[in-house]
Design a protein around this nucleic acid. Structure first.
Lengths: 224, 224
DNA sequence: GTAAATTTTTAGTCTTGTCTAAAAAAATAG
DNA sequence: CTATTTTTTTAGACAAGACTAAAAATTTAC
């Protein structure tokens, strides 16, 4: 399997992410905005990736990953999330500092390196943002009980299990508010006029969170 | 300081290495053979690097690094050697398995990453091959008492302090012979007809080492 | 269901880093 | 010291990946 350029890898990864979100064929424009390129560049690359049998692509109709393309995308995501875990757990990076560096590290090409790192980190199942880390075979851990905070019910005991690292600034914001993975909280009140909500955390501080925030945090219900 | 491409970084690194070896201006051809490119490509790149004030270059006369170019080269070498140390000490790579991967890792661009790694590894002074690791400020540890094995005297107690990782196959060969960093040995006899030598190791095995080998191993005299 | 707006593709250009072939400079040999 | 050999540079080409502008297809609006 001839190795891919960083660019090609980034395209595969983004197609994968976008497919997760919308479950349909991925449009040229959506890729362009995620990858910060022009639509024409996307078209060029899609044609190339289609030739390599990594994506299915029909002119004007968007694209999706082939089995092989998806396999590769998942391995890149594995690398990304393992490196993020390494940076946070071993090198004491903040969770808002890891993304950029992991974007570089994910392209390092060595199966032995990735698997050794996985072992060194003790086969973590979730990265510092709560995203699942695919295993060596591409299997992605599934967290059964998980919902977006925005959709959670009032007065239930909740625990933060994931935050969306893609939302620029969200991580820093949460850091400031002292909200992190594992933080327990309860929705006190939901305000329908702006879809914000008032939550109370373990430490008995209450915070008002905007829709933008609660859409990008996932929680599970704590049984106790 | 605009960041450099991997290619540019590799050129700087090789110019640095070659300058260490010969102390003169580095020729186009010598660079070409180290970098596995054609001389014409070297010329192109040298002109580019000269414009960026990273090398001094006079047509037909070879090149050398400017102060700034050298600073950058040293930081790349720092990264390379720290990563090698990480791979061997933390991920249990063999010393013959690290070079390729470190060639990729050395181009990851994050000062915070490198410094954190340095701290995580406990500020190592030498990498798994015995090469000195420049510190954050570019200062390179100096090993006072060091000579090539080929130049060492007979019947002295010696200890291996460095092996040349650039010599393809040497590391694997030494692995086989059970010779590693820290191995103590003594030269029993030198053969002038082929410049090989007979050495006895701690374990009382005697091995004949060719000139090619003894030129690429450095030792210090053990006081005891 | 056609016109306007939007999305996507094509065509052509640019930069980076490489190459080959040919020309020019430097080094070497007698 | 001149002729030959070697080294280095120039000139021109190419592939990757991006861009702009224009054309084509699709979608939306009325």
């Amino acid at each position: 399997m001839a190795s891919l350029s960083q660019s090609e890898e980034n395209y595969l990864k983004e197609i994968f992410h976008l497919t997760q979100l919308q479950k349909e064929k991925v449009s040229t424009n959506s890729l362009a905005s995620r990858l910060n390129t022009k639509a024409s560049s996307i078209t060029d690359m899609l044609q190339k990736l289609a030739e390599k049998q990594l994506v299915q692509y029909i002119k004007y109709k968007g694209c999706s990953l082939t089995e092989n393309g998806e396999k590769i995308a998942v391995q890149i995501i594995r690398k990304h999330r393992l490196w993020e875990t390494f940076l946070v757990n071993k090198l004491n990076f903040g969770w808002d500092e890891v993304h950029e560096v992991a974007e570089e590290l994910e392209h390092i090409d060595s199966v032995k390196l990735v698997d050794s790192l996985d072992q060194f980190l003790n086969y973590p199942k979730f990265d510092p943002h709560g995203d699942p880390i695919p295993d060596k075979n591409g299997k992605i851990p599934y967290r059964k009980t998980k919902m977006k905070l925005v959709d959670a019910g009032i007065h239930k005991k909740l625990e933060i299990v994931r935050v969306n690292e893609d939302e620029m600034g969200l991580l820093k914001y949460l850091e400031r508010q002292n909200l992190q993975l594992g933080t327990k909280l309860e929705i006190i009140e939901k305000f329908s006029f702006d879809d914000s909500m008032l939550v109370r955390t373990e430490l008995d501080t209450t915070i008002n969170l905007s829709k933008k925030v609660t859409e990008n945090i996932s929680v599970k219900i704590v049984e106790n």
